[in-house]
């Protein structure tokens, strides 16, 4: 009986009441979200900065501080804050050692792996014009197989001095960075794949190559601009 009455009353809810309730709920919820956003904003920004720094320091162990730059599509580069990246520009990090000297350049790259895009960060050293370290930004490769790219010593040894010289015109890499079958590495620009995780190894090579081909021709001619910490 009671339920019937309740139902009757509910069926004839005027539109205004519904709008009032929805408006009230939205207002309360809006306040809660804004509050949560404000409360956590600083901590989240800090965390993101620390995560980026850590990723850069991992691939360039000499680094003590970083600055974020973008290489512009037309050539040249500019320093950016936390704002938006201009369209077509490629983001990279200049890392400086304790004395404020350029310790290297770190950039991200991505290529299709076995399960999803493997996003890596690599460190580039201008003196030897080579890749000196890699770290994984994100991947969904099979645990125990594809994720060996993080732990396999022989594989990581590829990235102590991986050749990434530019050609004479400074327009592209002199030799494409390429992953080759396990045990068949003969040149310093080749990456020896992990046997059993060839697809993931190849993704790492392709990610470095694609990113370096775009980025390095823009950065290397203008290296002086990065030398001093600003």
């Amino acid at each position: 009986m009671n339920a019937d009455l309740h139902q009757l009353a509910a069926q004839s809810t005027p539109t205004a009441a519904m709008i009032k309730t929805l408006g009230l709920v939205s207002a309360i919820c809006g306040l809660i979200i804004v509050g949560a956003y404000q409360l956590t904003f600083d901590a989240v920004a800090d965390n993101k900065r620390i995560a980026t720094e850590r990723a850069v320091f991992k691939v360039l162990p000499a680094a003590k501080s970083i600055a974020e730059f973008v290489a512009l599509p037309a050539g040249g580069m500019e320093k950016i804050g936390t704002g938006e990246t201009p369209a077509g520009a490629v983001k990279f990090f200049a890392a400086y050692d304790g004395d404020g000297k350029l310790a290297g350049i770190a950039a991200e790259g991505g290529a299709k792996g076995y399960a999803d895009t493997v996003r890596i960060m690599f460190g580039y050293q201008p003196e030897c014009q080579c890749v000196v370290g890699i770290g994984v930004v994100s991947m969904r490769e099979t645990p125990g197989i594809g994720d060996k790219i993080l732990t396999d010593k022989d594989f990581l040894a590829n990235f102590t001095e991986l050749d990434a010289k530019l050609n004479a015109e400074l327009k592209a890499l002199a030799n494409e960075v390429k992953t080759v079958k396990h045990g068949s590495k003969t040149n310093p620009w080749q990456i020896d794949a992990i046997s059993g995780a060839t697809i993931t190894s190849r993704a790492v090579g392709k990610a470095i190559n694609d990113s370096a081909q775009v980025l390095l021709p823009k950065i290397v001619p203008a290296l002086e601009q990065l030398k001093a910490k600003s």
């Binding site: 139902q7 509910a10 809810t13 009441a17 519904m18 009032k20 309730t21 929805l22 009230l24």
Partner: peptide, 10 residues
């Protein structure tokens, strides 16, 4: 204050 019709939305 929640009318039955819009409860799921709420």
């Amino acid at each position: 204050v929640t009318p039955k019709e819009v409860r799921i939305a709420v």
